Amino acid sequence: MAEDRSDRLAVLIDADNTQPSIIEGLLAEIAKFGTSNVKRIYGDWTSTALKGWKEVLLEYSIQPIQQFGYTKGKNSTDSAMIIDAMDLLYTGRFNGFCIVSSDSDFTKLAVRIREAGLTVYGFGEQKTPGPFVSACDKFIYTEVLRAKTNENEPIKRRSAADLKQDTRLVRLLRNAVEASSDEAGWAHLAATGSNIAKQSPEFDPRNYGYGKLGELIAATKLFEVDERIGGDGQSKSIYLRDRRKRS
């Protein structure tokens, strides 16, 4: 019988472009997608610049990969990560990769992995270039992960007025609801979320201060929200409709 690879993930971290303060939130987030069978972090460990990382590697069982900087001003870490990623890809043991970096150099790697039919989860700061973000199936900004720690304040919830002024967000939500709706204009929340993920890999309600998609959508006050009880009398489903569709 073939081995089930449905939750096998390879986690590759660029230490030069990632802060150790995200590690707890990062691994908790990755656990939502599957099991981290490989956890590797790349950098020049002879450098004092990575001292903060050295203190957490043993605690979280992350394997450090030494990569000397051969030329001043050049980042050789990227090349080492890309080579390792391709070696892991060819083993056929994984169905997903987590690439942790804010560097656009990993754009082609993400594209190549997806071409092989595997899922790519990207993690990086909000300064991450758009091409790398778009190349991933799902991209999560690490500011959200740092907000979970004691050293950072939670991301402030944006008000309805602020959300309505975000034209890109409003357009994204309305397009997703419309694409997922029935003839009466009602769309299931789960189907709406799936549609949003296809349009915008970096979308995350936590970026706006909300823990769940339903909370964010309700906060915009642009949609009717209908909670329906299933035939078993216990299960609940949430449906959405653009208020402009109300007859």
Score class of each variant (00 low, 15 high):
2 A>E: 14
4 D>E: 10
7 D>V: 13
7 D>M: 09
7 D>I: 11
9 L>C: 04
10 A>M: 01
12 L>D: 07
16 D>V: 11
19 Q>C: 13
20 P>Q: 09
22 I>T: 00
24 E>S: 14
33 F>V: 13
34 G>L: 06
35 T>S: 15
35 T>F: 10
36 S>E: 11
37 N>S: 15
37 N>P: 02
40 R>T: 07
40 R>G: 09
54 K>Y: 00
55 E>H: 02
57 L>D: 07
62 I>Q: 06
67 Q>K: 10
67 Q>S: 11
70 Y>H: 14
72 K>L: 08
76 S>K: 07
77 T>W: 04
78 D>P: 10
82 I>V: 15
83 I>D: 08
83 I>E: 11
86 M>C: 05
89 L>E: 12
93 R>W: 13
93 R>D: 15
98 C>H: 09
98 C>F: 08
106 F>S: 01
107 T>W: 04
108 K>Y: 14
110 A>H: 04
121 Y>R: 11
125 E>Y: 01
126 Q>E: 10
126 Q>W: 09
127 K>A: 13
127 K>N: 13
128 T>I: 06
128 T>F: 00
128 T>A: 06
129 P>V: 10
134 S>R: 14
134 S>Y: 07
138 K>M: 00
138 K>P: 05
141 Y>R: 04
142 T>Y: 02
145 L>G: 00
147 A>M: 09
147 A>T: 06
148 K>V: 09
152 N>W: 14
153 E>C: 03
153 E>N: 11
156 K>D: 09
156 K>M: 11
158 R>W: 10
158 R>V: 11
158 R>Y: 08
159 S>C: 09
161 A>H: 13
162 D>T: 13
163 L>W: 00
165 Q>K: 15
166 D>W: 03
167 T>C: 06
170 V>S: 04
176 A>V: 00
176 A>T: 05
177 V>T: 05
180 S>Q: 00
186 W>R: 05
187 A>I: 03
189 L>E: 10
191 A>Q: 13
194 S>E: 14
195 N>Y: 05
196 I>P: 02
197 A>C: 02
197 A>N: 01
199 Q>T: 07
199 Q>C: 04
212 K>R: 15
213 L>C: 01
214 G>N: 09
215 E>T: 07
220 T>K: 09
223 F>V: 05
225 V>D: 03
226 D>V: 06
228 R>W: 06
229 I>G: 02
229 I>Q: 01
230 G>M: 04
231 G>Y: 11
240 L>E: 00
242 D>H: 12
247 S>K: 15
